[in-house]
Design a protein around this nucleic acid. Structure first.
Length: 242
DNA sequence: GCCAACGTTGGC
DNA sequence: GCCAACGTTGGC
């Protein structure tokens, strides 16, 4: 099964009122039980204890310790250039997001368990980087925020959708999505190459990007960032391009 | 367009 | 439950 990490240009969220107030109302999502084990499995090559620590931290909300990493920001990959998947164009650029009603979209089509679990961990109001992937100039272009927490991704039941999942039941949907809203463009485009250079330097000197998932989980389309990672990347927008 | 990385599938 | 084959992601 594919895990098309990306968004497609179908994501306008029907909504009539003020940007935040209405959408922000979060539906309680029935937590499924079956997939949970599978999905919380650490990815190959990662330290199990590290993963468990992460989980624990998320739940207990105790902070601060070195081994306990809390993620409160995110990075969302989306493809800004046209590409057909089962005959459907999966392009969804930041301009496409800005063109949606309320500049808001649902983030459908995620079909990878780890990415899905990150989606489900997202909290209202949290900020995320909007990242352009699989394109000429990969990198961060904007900041978005979560305006609706995880709820079932309806495209899993749509046979015509490229991300249709015949194994998912309506009574117990496998896949989730969130709603995200445009906040602002970053002050400048922050290219992958530049973030990567910092990541490499930080691996040597222990800087904030040493464990950034963009490089340690390179194919993951929904990624968490620590506060430190988020702040550092954001500080790059003030600098001259390299 | 190439291909490395890596998640998933299925044979055994 | 191992692991080879396969399919997808996504940088370059």
């Amino acid at each position: 099964m594919p895990w098309p990490s990306r968004k497609r240009d179908k994501g306008a969220v029907a909504d009539k009122k003020e940007p935040d107030a209405k959408i922000a109302k979060t539906e309680e999502e029935t937590s499924d039980t079956e997939e949970e084990e599978k999905s919380t499995k650490p990815p190959a090559g990662s330290s199990k204890s590290g993963w468990k620590n992460w989980k624990k931290t998320k739940e207990s909300d105790t902070g601060g310790e070195e081994s306990k990493i809390t993620y409160c920001h995110w990075l969302l990959k989306s493809e800004p250039e046209s590409r057909l998947e089962k005959g459907v164009d999966v392009k969804f650029s930041i301009d496409d997001l800005k063109a949606q009603p309320n500049q808001t979209t649902f983030w459908d089509g995620v079909r990878n368990y780890q990415a899905r679990n990150f989606l489900r961990a997202m909290k209202l109001g949290q900020q995320a980087f909007f990242y352009h992937s699989n394109c000429k100039e990969p990198g961060i272009v904007a900041i978005v925020k979560i305006v609706k927490e995880a709820y079932p991704d309806h495209t899993q039941f749509d046979q015509k959708d490229p991300h249709y999942d015949s194994t998912s039941r309506k009574e117990n949907p496998k896949w989730s999505m969130v709603d995200v809203q445009f906040v602002r463009m970053t002050k400048r485009f922050i290219p992958l190459s530049e973030i990567k250079a910092h990541h490499l330097a930080h691996k040597a000197d222990g800087g904030p990007l040493k464990n950034m998932m963009l490089f340690t989980r390179q194919r993951l389309s929904i990624q968490p960032l620590t506060q430190e990672e988020f702040d550092f990347v954001l500080s790059l927008e003030e600098e001259k391009p390299h």
